[in-house]
Amino acid sequence: MKIRTIGRHARESLKSISRNGWMTFASVSAVTVTLILVGVFFVIMMNLNRVAETIEEDVQIRVHIDVAASKDDQQSLKTQLEKIPEVKSVTYSPKKEELDNLVKSLGEEGKAFKLFEQDNPLNDVFIVKTKKPTDTMKVADKVTKYNYVAKVKYGQGKVEKLFKFIKASRNVGIVFIIGLFFTAIFLISNTIKITIIARRREIKIMRLVGATNTFIRWPFFLEGLWLGILGSILPIILISIAYYRAYDYIGPRLEGTFVKILPFDPFIYQVSGILILMGALIGVWGSVMSVRKFLKV
């Protein structure tokens, strides 16, 4: 195709948008409404996911080292741990530190444990973090069998439940997003279909003067693209403002807790990009599918 022709198609598609005023309005509104829904849901999902990630990242394996282990034995155990492919980091925490932490975590009552400072009954510990939180159980099982390992703790039982719960809620979220996406496509392509049915005469005439299908399709393709992009503008603005406000309001209130919401920058730019892309995709898909029906003249 000649560049001149592409220019012609672009002009044609823009003209058609302004000439079919109400139809354009209907299509753009449909895109707008659905993208607002998709956008809001997506923002919530991503933040819940972030929270889940923070919780998952908190999961660690505490490898209690046998008191009989010498410094060299400890070192070789550390090397062994680091060699496990799923392991991200191994941190050494001497028993003194362990006791301090315990005392601190119990507050007032913890002071009673200070007595043990002379004769610390705790073990030295390696704190192991895995690359993927879900590998925790697997790694823990492996480590239990190593020499000089007294105990392996990672919140047995609780962690499994937590991971199950997070996995389930993620799946539900994905199903929701996919469902919403297809509803959006259905809604929008239907609206676009109506606008195109109104123009099937036009398509027939194009065929009669010898326009190829590709030639006819292009302006519609571009029109769908513009409609989708136009329709994504309002959702982007609304969601950006709403998120900015929400972040301002919620952010400080979550200070000090383990829960954090995603920062405005770059999250909202990513969301905007996704919404534009979705709008464009849905618009193009809707119009191309609808035109196809009328090209068999």
Partner: peptide, 11 residues
Amino acid sequence: KVPLFRRNLGV
């Protein structure tokens, strides 16, 4: 080929 044919025809 129909479009190409119609280009050489007036209707």
